[in-house]
Design a protein around this nucleic acid. Structure first.
Lengths: 146, 146
DNA sequence: CCTATTTTAATGCAATTGCATCTATATAGG
DNA sequence: CCTATATAGATGCAATTGCATTAAAATAGG
């Protein structure tokens, strides 16, 4: 049995919910009003760009992004459909395949970053000093741990 | 022009995204596996319970919960359909109505809280000390500000 | 080797969300 | 009072998400 949370935990929970909603909404709005696809596309493209030529297996990307399996499967469909990602057969494992970013994908990611980075500055940078942002990041990472 | 975010802001942004996903997923899972409705229902019921007999206008609830207008409209449909909430005509303003919680709604909220509160303890309380949780809440609240 | 289990990925279908729009009432400005 | 604009709320339709299941290949255990 886990027990009841104290008030500070509940406050943090509520603040997490609200802050995330406000911040994400503002970032998504900026992307959309720049005619760009949603955040999830960026995240996937960026992981694939970092992975380089050898790409990533869908299940790896799924874990990196904390996506549900079926959501990743469909996101990959859309990205491939838009020519941003390639699905190559995987010789080690005939069940799966490997995803790699195309040059169109890299190009779009780069364009998205110009908007996305400004949106992060607006949503976070403008509101917190460097030390505060670092503290926040460290505390949030504790919530991800086992 | 807003400028580029520093590394600390980007780290905080990423950590916010991941922490929120992990924490919410775990809480939603607990509710579901206890056969209870999703978080959003709880939040709405709780706001209405706090509002008491006079209830809240949909637009007030929408702002309190940071919901989109159409999402709130449909959530209210579902809550009313489940008998948890009542829609009464509003005499001050014939366009709208007032939402109040029913006793079934209060009862469900109470049952949800037993699960929800344990889930918060598991997602937050167990991972942060009181002082840390307070710091986190304070920093997150800064992200909500104008 | 053979079967049982696990892992990888896709998909049909229902529920929810997002978008755009619509109706009705309220308020402001002349 | 009358028109123009703003606000409250609902809704049709498309896109996305969630759920459950499926198929196929890989791995484990006898």
């Amino acid at each position: 049995m886990t027990g009841k949370p104290d008030d500070a935990s509940v406050s943090a929970w509520i603040a997490l919910s609200r802050a995330q909603r406000v911040a994400f909404r503002s970032v998504e709005e900026r992307l959309k009003s720049a005619g760009l696809p949603p955040l999830a596309w960026y995240d996937a493209l960026w992981e694939l760009e970092k992975a380089g030529e050898q790409g990533l297996r869908p299940f790896e990307l799924e874990r990196a992004l904390l996506f549900e399996q079926y959501n990743l499967s469909r996101l990959a469909d859309r990205l491939a459909g838009a020519g941003l990602v390639e699905r190559k057969p995987c010789r080690d494992d005939a069940r799966g395949h490997v995803l790699t970013i195309t040059s169109a994908g890299r190009e779009l990611r780069r364009r998205m970053w110009t908007v996305y980075s400004e949106a992060i500055e607006e949503a976070v940078g403008r509101r917190l000093g460097t030390a505060e942002a670092e503290t926040l990041a460290a505390l949030l990472r504790k919530l991800e741990q086992p």
